[in-house]
């Protein structure tokens, strides 16, 4: 029910805030989504669409964070896997 999926804003129409709409692409499937609740959204942004309305804009730098963290983990693992270097 709270499913919201990310899609890319291709174009925006409508002047009035309440009726601002965008053509949003969900992996190639394009739908008309209301942008009334995301006044900050611009063309090229990824929005989270729920029941025909964008409820938030995805922050691309933050989206990278999980993967950076995983890279860090991998690097740490290599360090700690060196056997018995530091006696505990």
């Amino acid at each position: 029910m709270c499913l919201a999926i990310p899609g890319e804003v291709l174009s925006i129409e409508g002047e009035e805030a309440l009726y601002r709409c965008g053509r949003v692409s969900f992996g190639g499937i394009v739908k008309r989504i209301s942008l009334a609740l995301t006044p900050e959204a611009v063309v090229g942004d990824y929005v989270l669409a729920h029941a025909g309305v964008a409820i938030g804009v995805i922050n691309p730098e933050e989206a990278q964070r999980t993967f950076d963290y995983l890279d860090e983990l991998a690097a740490l693992e290599e360090l700690t896997e060196t056997p018995d270097e530091i006696p505990s």
Partner: peptide, 15 residues
Amino acid sequence: GFETTAPVNALAVFQ
């Protein structure tokens, strides 16, 4: 709905 859907329902009523 939960809070996720509340603004969407509010938007419908407001429109």
